[in-house]
Design a binder for these strands. Structure first.
Length: 607
DNA sequence: ATATTGCATGCTTAC
DNA sequence: TAAGCATGCAATATG
């Protein structure tokens, strides 16, 4: 029994005492449906992509029309969301996607269309017949940018043809556009998530990395590909072995790829430009404004606190920006994409927090300029001075989701990176060996939550610690955000560390993690898909779809990690996180700390 | 006299 | 070539 506010504004119930299972989330849980109005608990639906805390309005993926972020506006007008995409009714109608609001009952009958033969919707969800499902999954794996190089050409052709089949593929593919922190995709059926089979999980790890590029892969990373493409330097990479131009990928899709790739499983420390994934001008932003922020930086900012920092754009401060005049010229495209629309030259006040936690109010306005506009932030001098920024330094505008608050980060010119710039961005000046992200740096004066890692000799995390410090300001900011969250069941970045270290006392704290644990956790991050284990008590039903077997579960999975167990002569057990063969791991599941051993199975119960 | 504001100009860059 | 943007500069406000 739960008591919570129904997020559907049209719901007269106000509080919903019971929640029905709703749409399965890719993260494994279920969106909840108000028992009165039947509306999906909007935040749950959108948590992965939009991290919306309140219902609101977003733009349609297809036509940029503003649409409601909730799934149901009225019985006959609701916005469709599935597979990480959102589209307005018009576009969905145009793309011939039939929608059914209640089980088996069609609201909008599909017109006769080839794609209709492959799709149907039940309970607001898109269903695919076997063939389409397979193709959908294959396409998704292309999106993942992982498996393609291993596929036989015939399979790739199959996918290509599938995409060709939907020559309105900009729509179709956009629907699958993964979110920044896209979690596991699952096909849906009968109110149950259909988890991909273990074998698939192994080959397609969780798409959670944020912009890493492959360090040693023969195949160019998706981000490399994407960025080459974004810079107009399409390469004949082996991604498709030259048979088909990559242009079959719509641009937004490639955007998405670039932020998903982590081919070697490491969370990249490369400072990779992150193309925007939302905002009205998302396809028009110059790469020089793409925020360059490492995975760790983002992970630390967002993961530890269960909030998501969405880097919007960055800008190198010009002399006039950093001067005493107090005006910071904003890139027009960024201003229009991410800041509130303004019709009057006077603009609107814009509240931001800097990474030290200081609150600032800038005037966001524009000047008429050659029949165009020139956007500026006025009143930035105090902030610039407080952060001791100079010309050449880089300010990074980010947004905290949920909540949508703006955060002003920075990176010093002297800290610009050497590792960045897999892309052709040119915004960084004065590169040196050092790199410091400042959500941070300057503030050695404040508590460094990562310092505890230093003694552990975890090079990976130490590096993160050295270069990235989470300011208490932003931490507090985020913590505030979190405390305001209604939907605590939102699945954010499922980092075990995060789960274990947040909100434990007023100070920024972090669980002291020893080497082995850190390694374990890192593997957890990399192969989080493997962690989507069924609850021990749950039996899977095996469903064969085409040639692929799927496990289906009634209940969402729990997070766990397969582990090897060494039985010592003393009788004690030790665990190691080595990779196991499927056969070995079949009988061993470690979910958390409490161990239960029965027969040849070792189950560690989750908390 | 100095600071601030609003606009214009011209260089740079993308298309 | 056009748009974007850094900055110059004149008009206006303030002390």
């Amino acid at each position: 029994m739960e008591l919570d506010v129904c997020m559907n504004g049209a719901c007269k119930n106000g509080y919903a005492r019971e929640w029905k299972k709703g749409w399965p989330l890719r993260s494994g849980g279920f969106a909840r449906l108000c028992d009165k109005c039947g509306s999906a608990y909007a935040n749950s639906i959108f948590c992965e992509k939009f991290h919306l805390h309140q219902t609101g309005w977003r733009e349609c993926n297809f036509c940029n029309k503003s649409i409601h972020c909730g799934c149901i506006i009225s019985r006959f007008s609701f916005e469709y969301l599935d597979f990480g995409g959102i589209g307005c009714s018009t576009c969905l109608r145009a793309s011939q996607i039939p929608l059914i609001q209640e089980t088996g009952r069609s609201i909008r009958s599909a017109k006769n269309h080839a794609s209709d033969r492959h799709t149907e919707h039940i309970d607001d969800r898109l269903f695919l017949d076997g063939s389409s499902k397979r193709k959908f999954m294959q396409m998704r794996r292309i999106v993942d940018g992982r498996e393609s190089s291993r596929w036989p050409q015939a399979k790739r052709d199959d996918i290509d043809s599938c995409i060709d089949l939907n020559r309105e593929e900009m729509r179709f593919s956009n629907m699958m556009k993964p979110s920044n922190y896209s979690l596991k995709f699952s096909a849906l059926e009968n109110n149950r998530p259909t988890w991909e089979s273990r074998s698939m999980q192994r080959s397609s790890s969780l798409n959670m990395s944020l912009g890493a590029s492959s360090g040693n892969s023969v195949v160019p990373s998706a981000s490399e590909i994407a960025e080459r493409r974004f810079d107009g330097k399409t390469s004949s990479s082996s991604f498709h072995q030259g048979k088909r131009p990559l242009s079959i990928m719509p641009k937004p899709l490639m955007n998405a790829i670039s932020i998903m790739e982590s081919s070697n499983g490491m969370i990249s420390q490369e400072r990779v430009a992150r193309p925007p994934t939302d905002g009205k001008g998302k396809n028009m932003l110059l790469s020089r404004y793409w925020p360059r922020i490492t995975d760790q930086e983002l992970q630390q900012l967002s993961g530890d606190l269960k909030s998501t920092i969405v880097p919007l754009f960055e800008k190198v401060l010009s002399a006039s920006d950093a001067g005493r005049i107090g005006r910071l010229v904003l890139p027009k495209s960024c201003a229009e994409a991410y800041f509130p629309p303004i019709s009057q030259s006077d603009g609107v006040p814009l509240h931001m927090k800097d990474v030290k936690g200081n609150e600032w109010t800038f005037q966001f306005r524009f000047w008429p300029n050659n029949n165009s506009r020139m956007y500026v932030l006025e009143g930035v001098t105090p902030c610039i001075q407080a952060l001791q920024l100079n010309a050449g330094d880089i300010v990074i505008f980010s947004r905290i989701d949920p909540g949508g608050k703006f955060v002003l980060g920075f990176r010093r010119a002297s800290d610009s990176t050497d590792t960045q710039d897999a892309s052709a961005g040119n915004s960084n000046v004065f590169p040196t060996k050092e790199k410091t992200f400042s959500g941070t740096t300057a503030g050695n004066s404040y508590h460094d939550p990562l310092q505890t890692r230093k003694a552990n000799g975890d090079a990976y995390l130490n590096k993160c610690s050295e270069h990235f410090r989470l300011g208490t300001g932003i931490a507090e900011c985020l913590r505030t955000e979190n405390s305001e969250m209604v939907n605590n069941d939102l699945v954010q970045l499922p980092i075990s560390v995060s789960e274990k270290t947040q909100n434990i006392g007023p100070m920024c704290k972090r669980l002291l993690i020893h080497n082995e644990d850190a390694m374990e956790l890192r593997v957890t991050w990399e192969e989080a898909q493997d962690l989507l284990c069924p609850a021990p008590s749950v039996k899977a039903s095996i469903v064969a779809i085409e040639d692929q077997e799927f496990e289906e579960y009634e209940e969402p999975p729990v997070f766990g990690k397969r582990t090897t167990i060494n039985a010592r002569s003393s009788g004690s057990l030790s665990f190691a996180s080595e990779e196991m063969s499927p056969k070995e791991s079949d009988n061993i599941t470690v979910i958390d700390k409490d161990v239960e051993i029965s027969g040849n199975q070792c189950i560690m119960k989750t908390q």
